[in-house]
Design a protein around this nucleic acid. Sequence first.
DNA 1: CTCAAAATCCCCAGAATTGGGGATTGTTGA
DNA 2: TCAACAATCCCCAATTCTGGGGATTTTGAG
Lengths: 211, 211
Amino acid sequence: MSISVAIVEDNASIRDGIARLLNATPGFRCNQKYASCEEALQSIKEPLPDIVLMDIGLDGMSGIEGVRRLKQRYPNLNVVMLTVYDDNERIFQSLCSGASGYLLKNSSPEVVMAALTEVHRGGAAMTPSIAKKVLSLFRSIAPAQTESHNLTKRETEILEHLVAGSSYKMIADALNLSIETVHTHIKRIYGKLQVHSKTEAVSKALRQRLV
Amino acid sequence: MSISVAIVEDNASIRDGIARLLNATPGFRCNQKYASCEEALQSIKEPLPDIVLMDIGLDGMSGIEGVRRLKQRYPNLNVVMLTVYDDNERIFQSLCSGASGYLLKNSSPEVVMAALTEVHRGGAAMTPSIAKKVLSLFRSIAPAQTESHNLTKRETEILEHLVAGSSYKMIADALNLSIETVHTHIKRIYGKLQVHSKTEAVSKALRQRLV
DNA sequence: CTCAAAATCCCCAGAATTGGGGATTGTTGA
DNA sequence: TCAACAATCCCCAATTCTGGGGATTTTGAG
């Protein structure tokens, strides 16, 4: 079965050009074309396309807001941005809004097709220059790593359950342990993390990426 | 001028195989091979290779620590991870340590070559499945989106104290409230966040960047 | 001004957590 | 082989949370 692609793009000639290209390429088809996010949000329906190609610089709602709303309504829908913008802010917003890919309009048709194929397989796609910026953004917002508290395997496991919000009893049931054993492990965890409550432990665990 | 590549890889047959492949491919050359990070850090020198291909699962110093030290000494050196691991933690650590790419060992030679070319051009390279995980990690550490749970100002304030690990009594003291007031606020917070304990609330708050 | 929302306070009872004690059984590295 | 450590389990008492009820006062937007 070929990959069905929907296009959201205000420039009619670009829109039709991409659609024609897709329909002329074995393995792809395009039967949904929209000139705006509003139109897409209103008209798109089951059966959903496999992938939505989304422009950013649209009249009315921007493509970034568009992908946010599309993903909200259809969380499993794959949206790939296809745009001329390569500034950090737009990349950042798009990816945070749930886009599965970010391509620049100067990409060759082969690159776009390859990207669509990869996304359809469950991956994500970016042009290398975008990937570079993503990595840079990634480092800029990454929390600092801290020293190891050398928790044992069991302790780490129990800490994960704490983060999930489980009570002593729930953890005991899940791991087939006595509540007292869970109690003991948690006492040791508190000692190693230097905390005195579940909330503190959870907070520390999440902030320091212990889980 | 061809792209010069150094290899850090403990398995001799893989190491020599990649080197042979590179030297047999027009546009690439490989004249630096190391079996460990220690060896690479000691022997690598000007003129630096254009790119270092780094394994992760090495004897002695891991490739992640290796890229950190290499980038520390040569900030402009490009390092690409080539590994069998695809867990979030190793990806995260590698990229934060300064890697310009992350490839899986099951990638075809063509993909590896293409990635090296892109990195040499100043981009970054990832296999699509890795890119997917990077985007997911990206979202997980991205700064706040605004109030989706419409907590009031007071409720948010109290949630912050919960995240800090405070007890009802400590919060009451800090905000000059009665414990019962804190109790009431927390009951409302639980309702809005759809949780039933402090740990769950803290976990949700941190994961969704509500604080 | 007026009304709804926010913020404040109170009681109760069952459940859960915390911090002290202990103890036994494996595993494992020196 | 033996000590250190991980993992398991138990008791007790004090404290803290959670989930129901209520209630009153402040505040802010229309």
